[in-house]
Computed example of a mutant assay.
Amino acid sequence: MTVDCAVIQRETPAPERPHRRTEGPVRTCVGCRKRELAVDLLRVVAVSNGNGHCALTVDQAGNLPGRGAWLHPDDRCLQAAFRRRAFGRALRITGSPDTSAVVEYVRAQTGAD
C-alpha cells in the first residue's frame, strides 16, 4: 500500500477588519443616509396641531407614539433632510410640517459642542 504524502494547503484567515459597534439597533439618518446606532441619532416625530397641520418635535426620551425619522444632531444633515424633503417621506405625512422645534434643538446642540 502506498501513501501519497501531499501537503494539505489550508486557507489562511482573512486579515482582521475592525468591527463596528453593535450594541443596539441601527438606524439611517434621513439627511446624509448614513447608518449609525440609534443612540447616536435624534428621533424626530410628527405631532398633529389639531387643525390638519403637523409639527416636528424631537423625541428625546424615545417614547412618543408614531413613526420616527432619525437624524444626526448636525446642521448639515438637517439642511440635507430639508433639501431632500425627507421628513415628509420618512414620517408619511403630506404637506410641509412646522420644523422650528427641530431647528432650534439642533442649533442648540451644535452650539453647545
Results as ranks from 00 to 15, higher is better:
A38C: 07
D40V: 08
V58N: 01
R83I: 10
A14V: 12
G66N: 11
R43P: 14
P65C: 07
S48M: 05
L42F: 04
R33F: 01
P73Y: 00
H19F: 06
I8S: 13
A69R: 06
V106H: 02
T28E: 13
Y105V: 01
E23S: 14
F87D: 09
E11G: 10
A69F: 03
G31H: 02
V26K: 14
V103S: 03
A101L: 08
P15A: 13
V58A: 01
A61D: 14
A80I: 05
T28I: 14
N63T: 15
A6T: 13
R89I: 06
S48W: 01
T57C: 10
N63W: 10
F82S: 03
A38Y: 05
Q9V: 12
E104I: 00
G68N: 08
F87G: 05
G68I: 07
G24Q: 15
E23N: 14
A46T: 07
D98T: 02
N49G: 08
G66S: 08
E36H: 15
P15L: 13
A80R: 15
P73N: 06
A101W: 00
A81P: 03
A61F: 05
Y105R: 01
T12I: 09
V45P: 07
K34E: 15
A6D: 11
G31K: 04
E16A: 07
N49L: 12
D40T: 12
H72R: 09
D59M: 07
T94Q: 07
V44T: 04
R43N: 15
F82H: 05
A38M: 14
N63D: 12
E23T: 13
D40K: 11
V58S: 01
T22I: 13
T99R: 05
R89C: 00
A46L: 05
D74K: 04
G24F: 10
I93A: 01
P65Y: 06
C54F: 13
R21M: 12
L42A: 03
G95K: 00
R85I: 02
S48I: 05
R92Y: 00
A61V: 13
A55S: 10
R107V: 06
V30D: 09
F82C: 05
L64P: 04
R33V: 07
A55I: 05
D74G: 04
L56E: 09
V45S: 11
L56R: 00
E36C: 09
P97T: 06
G52F: 02
D75I: 09
S96W: 00
G88F: 00
T28P: 08
K34W: 01
A55P: 03
L71I: 02
T94G: 03
E11S: 12
R92E: 15
P15T: 13
D74F: 03
G66P: 08
T12V: 10
V106I: 14
C54P: 11
R27I: 11
P18W: 01
S100K: 04
A55M: 10
W70V: 11
P13S: 14
P13A: 11
A6Y: 03
A46V: 07
P65Q: 12
L78N: 00
P15W: 07
V106G: 03
N51I: 06
V106E: 05
R83T: 14
C77G: 09
A86W: 06
